[in-house]
Amino acid sequence: MTVVNLARDQDAGAQVAKHVRDALIMAPTLAPLPPGELSRALEERLAPPESDRADLEAAHWSLARAREALARFEYDAVLAHLDDAEARLLGTWPSPRWMALLSDLAFERGLLFMRVGLRAEAVRAFELVHRLDPERGALHPARHPPAIVAAFDDAANRIAAPAPVVRLAVTSAVDGAQVYVDGRAVGVTPHVVELSPGRHYITGTFADRRVAGRVLDIDVSMPRAEFALPFAALDSEDLARQWRLVVIAAPRVGDGAPALDITELTRRPIALADRDAVIAIADGADGTLYVAGFDARTQTEHPWAPATRVGVQRVVERFAELPRALTPDSVLAVAPPTESETVPWIRTTWGRGVISAGIAAALITGALLTPRLLSREVSGSCCTDITFGLGVGGGFSFP
């Protein structure tokens, strides 16, 4: 069975999910989804809605390292750090912070080109700075050399001047993908956009797909060009997280139990986990947590109930009462022992039988010998010779 945490209070929902998992383990005919990446993606606390935060932070630190390397004149290291930051950003959703970071990357790239005497390349990099951040003003002469200030101003003038455009046809394997040019939404695929010559960032987003981003150098010599967004499918764990974020973000209406259709709600986790039943955790408009379930095999729905210990137990018991054929993947599998993990003979059935028989024989022998030992007389000796029988042909004595 699959457990899904759809509570807005993710910490509280994760606690209930753990309780549901424990209750399923105790049920003889039920078992939760085996622990792993998918179960964690469905049950545990979600990352904040800005799911690309880690890549944005990594890009920020790569930019900082590039600046440090530029100050030490380590130009190869500068390029490596800038390329790493750019690659991370091209795989994340466009946002204001995304645009600011790419603008800073382009500026540092322009400074590097000026250092090595490539002024034309520097102006092209500075043009991208102005496209991404039109509000960025002129450079302060006291902070930058005159040559850099002049190159930056030339880039601004070229952006403002009329220029021939290139018609770029953007397509994708799935129609309807959102297209961004330099961080701004321009339409959905298939879409034709007019671009000025120079360096541009083309990004595409689509549900159930990874963000597709590329850098294109548009040349005026090609009046028309085509570009296909290279979308890649999300794995099941990322699909689960994306779906949960959408459901959690949906507004809660009404009073009491969540106004969510449990049958429709559980279709996605059933497909993702390849299991026939789901227990979902969600909260109502007032924040109270509830649990509900759906069994796809029998089309049986268990309506929302308060997520107390009693409520969780009742939902689990309702599932346990349903007729269900046990299959190898419906219970937690236990691998057979290997040669190095062979069960000791003392823990086997025949081993326990031998031990039990030995204990019984010892008790009977002791009962038979005790009267003889008590009736033995002590004669002509300072010490008593006491012999304890251990069975046939054995024993030990104390003189």
Rank of each mutant, 00 (worst) to 15 (best):
151 A>R: 06
285 A>S: 09
240 A>K: 03
399 P>L: 15
104 D>R: 15
340 S>N: 13
262 I>F: 01
305 A>R: 10
121 E>C: 00
344 P>D: 02
175 D>G: 09
75 Y>N: 07
123 V>R: 05
209 R>P: 05
20 V>H: 02
32 P>R: 02
191 H>N: 07
202 I>V: 14
50 E>R: 14
398 F>K: 15
317 E>A: 10
109 R>F: 00
331 V>G: 06
153 D>Q: 15
174 V>P: 04
164 P>K: 14
220 V>F: 09
138 A>M: 07
18 K>Y: 05
92 T>M: 05
371 P>Y: 06
232 A>V: 12
44 E>T: 09
255 D>G: 07
385 D>H: 15
238 D>F: 04
353 G>S: 10
229 L>S: 01
163 A>R: 12
356 S>F: 12
166 V>R: 03
137 G>N: 00
13 G>T: 08
169 A>T: 15
148 I>M: 10
34 P>Q: 02
238 D>T: 09
328 P>G: 04
219 D>A: 13
111 L>S: 06
158 R>M: 14
203 T>P: 00
320 A>N: 08
43 E>Q: 12
303 P>N: 01
397 S>R: 13
243 W>P: 04
190 P>W: 11
145 P>R: 11
115 R>Y: 03
134 P>T: 04
165 V>D: 14
103 S>M: 05
193 V>P: 04
388 F>P: 06
56 L>V: 03
80 A>N: 08
203 T>R: 14
161 A>T: 14
263 T>M: 05
113 F>I: 02
161 A>K: 10
339 E>V: 13
281 I>F: 01
336 P>M: 03
205 T>I: 07
214 R>L: 06
14 A>Q: 07
115 R>H: 10
65 R>M: 08
